[in-house]
């Protein structure tokens, strides 16, 4: 198979205006990926699928990744005049890198039996701008998986034929796979009596009638539940 650089060059020539970056992968797995721009994503995807040498016709895995806002600290040595003397002083600058959501596609070729080529798309931000073009028209296998990303990460896929929640119920509001998701604290009892689950559950539930034996539950300290 061609190298990612070759694929990038050929795709950029084939699709005018397309912008592709190579995202390195430092680990031992050595699976670098192509970051494609959102505007031309469907065209690039179509190129990857239909190009005779590539024929990446099998989209195996589609998934989302949540990257939170980061603060990158940079320490630069700056020369300053302190008390008439020139000294090197460390100056720390903080740069805020806004977070984004990412959709990652693992592509293989069944025709040529090669792969994987990994492509990724990034949203503008994690709120209203969390939109990406859907690649379901190119690869049907993305249908359920993009729905799952929409459900769990909240990326809206433009052009998806049936974008609904898939694993959570329709009335559910948040996106549970996001890194800043806060668990609801009103779920049912868990009988591990030392957990903070118990403390929370105590706030939410009055004990059940005598039959259940629930009123006998004590926390580690031996406090009985308040009625």
């Amino acid at each position: 198979m061609e190298s990612l650089e070759q694929i990038k060059d050929r795709a950029e020539t084939a699709i005018p205006g397309a912008k592709i970056d190579i995202v390195p992968n430092p680990g031992p797995a050595n699976q670098p990926s192509l970051l494609i721009d959102n505007e031309h994503a469907p065209a690039i995807a179509k190129f990857l699928r239909d190009d005779a040498a590539l024929r990446l016709d099998f989209c195996s895995n589609v998934t989302g990744v949540d990257w939170l806002d980061r603060v990158a600290k940079k320490t630069v040595k700056v020369k300053k005049v302190v008390d008439g003397e020139e000294k090197e002083v460390n100056q720390t600058t903080e740069e805020k890198i806004p977070g984004y959501l990412e959709a990652v596609y693992h592509l293989y070729s069944i025709t040529h039996k090669h792969g994987a080529v990994i492509i990724r798309m990034r949203t503008e931000d994690r709120a209203a701008g969390a939109r990406l073009p859907s690649l379901t028209p190119i690869w049907r296998s993305a249908e359920f998986q993009e729905r799952e990303i929409y459900d769990l990460y909240g990326i809206r896929f433009d052009g998806h034929p049936d974008l609904r929640r898939i694993l959570m119920w329709d009335e559910f509001e948040d996106h549970p796979m996001r890194k800043d998701y806060v668990q609801p604290d009103d779920f049912e009892w868990e009988p591990t009596p030392h957990d903070d689950v118990l403390a929370r559950a105590k706030q939410h539930y009055t004990p059940r009638p005598e039959l259940d034996g629930a009123e006998k539950i004590t926390a580690g300290s031996g406090d009985t539940l308040k009625r």
Binding site: P193, D212, G213
Partner: peptide
């Protein structure tokens, strides 16, 4: 026999 304390 009991749901909570005995399970611990």
């Amino acid at each position: 026999r009991e749901r909570f304390n005995h399970l611990l």
